[in-house]
Design a protein around this nucleic acid. Structure first.
Length: 308
DNA sequence: GTCCAGGATTCAG
DNA sequence: CTGAATCATGGA
């Protein structure tokens, strides 16, 4: 097994502590698909062209990077929202009056939205439709290994759109993508002509950003919401997947509501950091830690105005 | 074998 | 516009 040449472990001071369980949920809970545990239980991951390792230590989070690499710590600090912007947003959520959110938030203290690169978020969630998180990780890992630039030590960056567009059909099929292979190829061909797409998209207001994303093959409302949230830092974005549908039905009594209606509810109820609230609920629901609560909520579905 | 997965697309009505 | 069928793959 190839290995990388690591620096020594060093403390990573964040604005708020991240317990081991929260760290695991954050790195391997369906936001990013590029982290895995090594034999010692430390997390190893690649984001952009940074290879890094993280582990909970006795006095807080610890990190190490490739020896000789520069910028790993600052990259990690950005990735993990070290300055605490989301800590303030989390505090502003209505957890005081909403006991469902309060218990979900307490189950994962310090849980944050990872500040991923748009390219990484788009590739990950293009693979995500109708797939379990573990399988998405396998698909993305295969894409990186077969088509991504080697970073040494057996690690790879994610493939460029050029690499995806030029890839053999057989190579893509070997990544277990299924029908998602066409999504990746189609999106790759469209974005190939727009090398600055991430910057152009980042300059848009969120509604326009969602429209641009949904114009890409394989990107519907849910994937667009995820890419906006995880890749473009739009914390107000509220992705509604099967887990969130179940969570909102069970905990808030919103049975029979359609995804678009639940999205409207989430944005209205949770506000500017709805996406962060969504992640608390998603994580709690997936771990079976979500319990229904008797809180006062509307009994009638909202009528989302159709965009476009 | 059946069911489901951080859904999207296409088509019928 | 809404709802249903279909899509490819692997694990429970």
């Amino acid at each position: 097994m190839a290995s990388a040449d690591w620096t020594s472990w060093r403390p990573l001071r964040l604005a708020e502590d991240v317990p081991a369980g929260t760290l695991a949920e954050q790195l391997d809970g369906g936001q990013a698909f590029r982290w895995s545990r090594d034999a010692d239980g430390a997390w190893i991951g690649v984001f952009n062209r940074t290879l890094a390792a993280l582990r909970p230590g006795p006095e807080g989070l610890e990190w190490r990077g490739r020896s000789g690499a520069t910028g790993t710590e600052s990259a990690l600090r950005h990735y993990l929202d070290a300055d605490g912007a989301q800590a303030r947003l989390s505090e502003s959520l209505p957890w005081r009056s909403d006991e469902v959110l309060r218990s979900a938030r307490a189950a994962y203290p310090g849980l944050r939205i990872l500040r991923q690169d748009p390219h990484e978020a788009l590739i990950g969630f293009l693979c995500s439709s109708n797939k379990r998180i573990l399988q998405i990780r396998v698909m993305v890992a295969a894409l990186a290994a077969k088509l991504g630039e080697p970073l040494g030590g057996g690690f790879h960056a994610l493939p460029s759109w050029q690499a995806v567009a030029a890839a053999d059909e057989a190579v893509l099929r070997a990544c277990s993508l299924g029908y998602r292979a066409a999504y990746l190829r189609g999106t790759a061909k469209k974005l190939l002509a727009r090398p600055r797409w991430a910057d152009e998209f980042a300059a848009l207001e969120t509604p326009a950003l969602l429209d641009e994303l949904q114009a890409l093959p394989g990107v519907g409302p849910k994937v667009a919401a995820c890419v906006a949230l995880f890749g473009f830092g739009r914390l107000e974005s509220f992705p509604v997947d099967t887990w969130v549908v179940q969570a909102l039905a069970k905990a808030y009594g919103l049975h029979g509501w359609k995804p678009a209606q639940l999205e409207q509810f989430g944005k209205a109820h949770f506000g500017e950091a709805a996406g962060l609230a969504q992640q608390y609920l998603f994580s709690a629901a997936r771990q079976g830690e979500l319990r229904p609560a008797a809180i006062t909520l509307p009994s009638r579905p909202a009528h989302p105005k159709s965009r476009r």
